[in-house]
Write a protein that binds this DNA or RNA. Structure first.
Lengths: 191, 191
DNA sequence: ACCTGAACACCGTTCAAGT
DNA sequence: ACCTGAACACCGTTCAAGT
């Protein structure tokens, strides 16, 4: 009994997406091209179009795999914990947030990310669905900016200006989630 | 006395950015290329590189012009009003949010958008600076997703699925700002 | 100071044809 | 079913040279 299912071709969608994620993490979104991906797979660029309709289609599949890293929704979980889980999934691949932000728009229904966040909101909240969407949009905006600064810094000149990126970004994220939590009726008062 | 200042060349940065904004609004960010911009200016592509170091440099200038549409910070203003002003500036050009999101990362200091939002937060708030940044990140994430869906819908198949985009997006935006407002101690209770 | 001309090293996508 | 080969219509950027 073979360990892998029978395939006539050399690659399937699942495998290609895995290699694409590898390239994304190593070289970043601007260098994740269909041609480089084809080279990595030792295949002609046109071969990719048998598996995917377009680069958009490929990126949507990549986006799904990034979001699949989010743990399942846990009712009654802390919102800060749930928000961190979503952010960490985006941070787990270079330019992950931008990939999701660029391809999430076309998706119709609710995403796994929204489910995890909604489960951490109080059931008494009038519009928990809208609130979960808003929280996700904050996380996507925040993480996209953070990852872009990472990218910019890596090949930029050493800047003498004050820029403690790590602490500052974490503080902004915590502040945003704190505001949203209190607005939702959670952790009502810090002082 | 001439109406325009003396220039030896045909174009300056200001003028080029104006034409770039025009192309952006008409064709969208993916079709705002250096070559198309050059064609529009009746110039060779290489001529643009006398005025701008790179396409990134050009897009940063475009981003600044979009953000310049935000009215000056008004202390004590309503947060919802200030947030709408920022969102409207982003919406005033096609793909405006994505342009700002993609080029804002490299900017070091405070932006005009953050100033306007901070002025609408209570002075008593402990970390008003962090809060203003978080609100801006929500607006950028939200508006980027909205504008992407606009783009996708325009040349997509007519979908029979429920998608009242207008009302839904506005509701999510209002819900997000409502949460952030209440979290900041404004409009403490709706019910 | 401002721009041309020409080149370099790439892109995404299509499509007939092979196996 | 899955991939090759070849082409089409593009990209951003550099750089010597012109005016």
């Amino acid at each position: 009994m073979p360990m892998t299912p029978a395939r006539t071709g050399r690659h399937d969608r699942e495998h290609i997406v895995g290699i694409a994620l590898d390239l994304l993490d190593r070289y970043g979104l601007p260098d994740l091209t269909m041609r480089r991906l084809a080279t990595e797979l030792e295949v002609q660029p046109s071969a990719l179009y048998w598996h995917f309709d377009s680069k958009q289609d490929l990126l949507a599949a990549v986006s799904d795999r990034i979001l699949a890293r989010i743990p399942a929704a846990e009712p009654g979980a802390d919102l800060l914990v749930a928000a961190h889980a979503v952010r960490d999934a985006l941070l787990s691949y270079r330019d992950g947030a931008e990939v999701v932000l660029s391809s999430a728009a076309l998706r119709p229904g609710r995403s796994r990310a929204e489910d995890a966040l909604r489960a951490a909101l109080p059931t008494a909240l009038p519009d928990a669905g809208l609130a979960a969407t808003a929280v996700l949009q904050f996380i996507l905006g925040h993480t996209t900016l953070v990852q872009q600064r990472m990218h910019g810094e890596s090949h930029g000149a050493a800047d003498s200006a004050v820029d403690p990126a790590d602490g500052e970004d974490a503080a902004v994220f915590a502040a945003g989630i704190a505001l949203l939590s209190r607005g939702a009726g959670l952790t009502p008062m810090l002082r």
